[in-house]
Amino acid sequence: MSKTLRQAIEERRSYYAISDEEIVSKEKVEEVVQFAVKYSPYAFNSQSGRVVILFNEHHKALWDLTKEHLRPLVKEEDFHKTEARVDGFKAGYGTVLFFEDTEVVKNLGEQMPLYEDKFPTWSEQASGILQYVVWTTLETEGLGASLQHYNPLIDDDVKERFDLPKHWRLCAQMPFGKPVEAPGEKTFQSLDERIKVFK
């Protein structure tokens, strides 16, 4: 599917109703993520972003794990709403997990003490850019996605389940799949209130 960058940016939305129908190969998804990880910018070229792609039973296990962490936190009479939302993510084709390598961030601070307090912020910014590049590029492939934040609730179990380094800090989860419902209408504030131009 060929789209211009502007089209992809405009059409990228949060899709909550997704299916596991394979409209794009797993290899293509992997290629999209590899491209994003390689070319997304990082402060001082730190390349601190880490990504895990989950398909099949691994993808489903993530959302089952998430649901079990949420169960004791939500009133029993309200849990069906939470369960339906999480099962919607589980119904997708896969999930991208975004991490930041805290060892990289810490080492940069030690090497450049003048900026030490800034590196965690720059790490978050870089992760946000990486998430956006993956999300927008998945859009160009016809996949719908959304960005979820069940961390730090699930962090330890995710690292244990997928045998990941302890110094990887989970930032976000991105379930994706074939869109089965259009996203809701998006409203915009006046750009005059958000942008100032001095000529």
Rank of each mutant, 00 (worst) to 15 (best):
V158H: 00
D156M: 15
L54F: 04
Q111K: 15
L62Y: 02
D155E: 15
I23R: 07
K26C: 11
I195V: 15
K118R: 15
I53W: 05
L164E: 13
E193K: 14
I18G: 00
E83S: 14
A8F: 04
D156V: 14
F79G: 04
F188R: 14
H80M: 10
T95G: 06
K106I: 15
Q131K: 09
G142L: 09
S14F: 08
S14H: 02
K60P: 06
T140F: 05
K3V: 09
E68A: 07
P41G: 02
K196I: 13
L191G: 00
F89A: 05
A172W: 00
Y42E: 02
V24H: 08
L97A: 07
H80Q: 13
S46H: 09
L62D: 01
K106W: 10
R13Y: 07
K196W: 06
A91D: 07
V180G: 03
Q7R: 06
G128Y: 05
K75W: 06
G92N: 09
S146M: 11
K38P: 00
D157L: 04
G88Y: 04
E160G: 08
R85K: 14
K159E: 04
H69D: 11
Y115A: 13
V52S: 05
P183H: 07
G94A: 05
S190C: 08
D192Y: 06
R13N: 08
V96S: 09
E10H: 04
D163T: 07
G109P: 01
I18H: 01
K67R: 14
L130T: 09
D64N: 10
G88F: 05
A61C: 12
K26M: 12
I9H: 10
L143I: 13
W63A: 01
P175I: 11
V74K: 11
W135Y: 13
R194A: 15
E77V: 14
R161P: 01
E10P: 01
G109D: 12
M1F: 04
A8H: 02
L114K: 08
H149C: 12
K159T: 09
V29Q: 03
F35A: 06
K28D: 10
T121L: 13
K28L: 10
F35P: 07
G142A: 10
D20Y: 11
Y15S: 00
P183R: 09
P152D: 07
G92K: 08
Y39N: 06
D101F: 03
R6C: 13
K178C: 06
S48P: 03
T95H: 02
D156W: 14
S46D: 10
E124I: 04
Q131W: 13
E22P: 02
P120I: 10
E31P: 03
F99K: 01
I23G: 00
